[in-house]
């Protein structure tokens, strides 16, 4: 299991994957918004999404878990 965390404090703009979905390394899992920029949260490795912990418009802090990868 790998926790994919936000590297920054930001607002969640979009979730681009679903639980159960297989993803490649580097795939965009969610897009955050900070200082008017779209900041993708990328999969650190290939795997299957087992959990998505945030929803659009959530405020996340640096280090918050965005999704969990199996």
């Amino acid at each position: 299991m790998t926790d994919v965390r936000s590297e920054i404090a930001a607002n969640v703009w979009k979730i681009t994957v679903e639980v159960g979905q297989a993803v490649e390394a580097g795939a965009t899992l969610a897009i955050l918004e900070s200082m008017k920029m779209e900041i993708p949260v990328e999969a650190p490795r290939a795997g299957t999404i087992t959990e998505v912990r945030v929803a659009p418009d959530d405020r996340v802090a640096e280090g918050d878990i965005i999704a969990v990868l199996d």
């Binding site: 590297e7 920054i8 404090a9 930001a10 900070s34 200082m35 008017k36 920029m37 900041i39």
Partner: peptide, 8 residues
């Protein structure tokens, strides 16, 4: 680094 809050 624009990934970090747009580089602000």
């Amino acid at each position: 680094d624009p990934y970090q809050a747009g580089g602000s």
